[in-house]
Write a protein that binds this DNA or RNA. Structure first.
Lengths: 151, 151
DNA sequence: CCAATTCGGTTTCGTAACGCAACCCTATTT
DNA sequence: AAATAGGGTTGCGTTACGAAACCGAATTGG
């Protein structure tokens, strides 16, 4: 059978994973956040097969995470740029990055070094928080009935 | 060739995706956060094939995201419980959930309703922030050289 | 202007993963 | 003792993934 899709799931995590839940999509988005815009640059920097890259870029464009814009002067030359929707994945990527740095630190010990452009100071640890900004753990929150979560 | 693995990538996002970057793993973690602990409950609530569930649970246990504990009184009966590492995925899951709710709202309009157990108030929107808690966008931060990011 | 290279893919083909259904053994319930 | 539930494993067909080859348009170099 086909891989299970979650388009119509009533769980937003499942719907989100449907768009960026495969091995490559989030890495492409991350790379785009680093400033990469060109097909060949994605391909070389990620080491991804060209057909897979094509497929993922198309899907990300279809899902409006990236926008494909023709920047050619004389003919066609393309750039893939983050949309607002794509930029909104920033917290997801950073949360994942911080988790990875904490629990699977790099062999060479290098961790996330991401700094505020204005102040030069490192960014803070991400956390789920209440309306006042007080950090909450999974045990502090009350999850409503998931009903039919991911079927 | 085998699916590309990212175990040894020097990018922590890639390493994180190596552990929870497939279609099901994060949904299993989410379900565990809802309180599900038993094999059969995961299977029914997620609608996942049993062999896939076995494989994912094993991998999550191997990666110490879940712990498999024998809770049988007379014989073997198992529970899969979140470890600290698994609970630390909370910000990732919530960030993904909020993104999904914002950009792919449920057909019935129901969005995330997750509340502080203590106050009953809904949780806040997640964001990347500086040391003082000031929200930062992807444009506000300075990304250091990714070097050899995800190869 | 012609040749070489780059860009942005598509095609081919072999392998790995996924999904379903069926089966199995051990506990527990009736 | 029989039936059912828990926790898997095995087969098998379909789909996705990955590498490399190929391709046409655009650019670069001479």
């Amino acid at each position: 059978m086909a891989r299970k899709r979650f388009d119509d799931s009533n769980c937003s995590v499942a719907r989100a994973l449907n768009e960026v839940g495969d091995w490559w999509s989030l890495l492409i988005v991350l790379q785009a956040m680093y400033g990469t815009r060109r097909y060949v640059d994605f391909q070389q920097e990620l080491g991804i097969a060209k057909n897979i890259l094509c497929d993922r870029l198309s899907r990300l464009v279809d899902n409006e995470v990236l926008a494909k814009v023709n920047v050619g002067e004389h003919g066609a030359r393309y750039e893939y740029r983050l949309t607002d929707k794509g930029r909104d994945l920033f917290p997801v990527v950073i949360a994942l990055r911080q988790w990875g740095d904490k629990w699977n630190p790099a062999p060479d010990g290098s961790a996330l070094d991401l700094r505020d452009r204005a102040t030069g100071r490192p960014i803070g640890q991400m956390h789920v928080s209440d309306a006042d900004g007080k950090p909450l753990t999974v045990r502090d929150v009350f999850m409503p009935e998931p009903a039919d979560d991911a079927g």
